[in-house]
Design a binder for these strands. Structure first.
Lengths: 161, 161
DNA sequence: TGATTTTCCATATGGTGTTATATATCAAGT
DNA sequence: ACTTGATATATAACACCATATGGAAAATCA
């Protein structure tokens, strides 16, 4: 069965990137599930941003993640309910709500940094190894490699050398 | 403000591809809106698949688009209500529902092929022109170019040389 | 100071994707 | 023919992102 998205080249590059990104996220989810924490792979960037940049107001969090503000508000509410982030009002500006990692959030990030993020990073790096040439060719190679061996299986192999 | 997704390299490649794909789709939407047809950019691949491959049952449509079957079922229902696709039972297998372009659907695809798809394709090609090197570098260049000049503005310039 | 504009965040709504599951039909074996 | 299992599609439930909009606080300015 012909892959139409692929056939259309540049015309459907947006759909193709989105599709591939979602597949990578779904595969990464299976690796992350080993932490036994009930959060989605898409929530980790927010936690990682707080880890890397420190406490941030909602708007700056949205900027640093490159997504729209309502998405951050929703994620913060979710992660807040799970006790992974905390929200406190800004001292100087009552409109701002500063988001920071909670104790448990920090623990989770530390565990992830130690146990699973390296696996994912290595698996993706392996997936993208020795690529060259035009973007569309590189994408095709990645898609083919992923179809042959999923990211989470690559992570397993990397994890136990 | 640091782009965290970008900073994390391979670790957040999935989020990054999805984000970039969504941005391209959103930009393409603005170009497609010139057709005055109230459908989303993400629906065009389905129409394009029917145009390219002819009438197909739901399952094969899902395969050729690389998405899950329920997504196709929903899109077909939507496009059916808009009168752009038609569904007919298969002769030999009562379970199968064959999806095909309606008269209006064909008209829309023909107009899109003539008027807007080339613009989008050229704009994306321009966006990706003269790229080389590792995937992550190429992505960064695309992101930078897109931030400087959005895809729909590129399409305008390409349209009126 | 009081009025207006801007900024920040929350909420509402819509669209698309997923997985899990139900239903209907086909196919195969007894 | 009947039961059983596989297959095709629909439906339900959930996640995520976007735009539009509203309300509160801050900033600006007459």
């Amino acid at each position: 069965m012909e892959d139409v998205i692929r056939s259309f080249g540049y015309l459907s590059l947006g759909s193709r990137l989105k599709r591939l990104g979602e597949q990578l996220q779904a595969d990464a989810q299976r690796v992350l599930d080993r932490l036994d924490v009930p959060i989605q792979s898409s929530q980790y960037p927010l936690l990682a941003a707080l880890d890397r940049l420190g406490p941030l107001p909602v708007g700056e969090l949205a900027l640093s993640l490159g997504i729209a503000q309502p998405g951050v508000t929703r994620s913060v509410a979710l992660l807040g309910e799970l006790g992974l982030v905390e929200v406190s009002p800004s001292d100087d500006d009552q409109r701002r709500r500063i988001v920071s990692l909670s104790r448990n959030g920090r623990r989770l990030v530390d565990a992830a940094k130690r146990d699973v993020w390296p696996q994912i990073e290595n698996a993706v790096a392996q997936l993208c190894a020795n690529l060259s040439g035009p973007l569309l060719s590189q994408l095709a190679t990645i898609e083919d490699r992923l179809a042959a061996t999923s990211l989470d299986r690559r992570a397993e192999k990397v994890a136990t050398p």
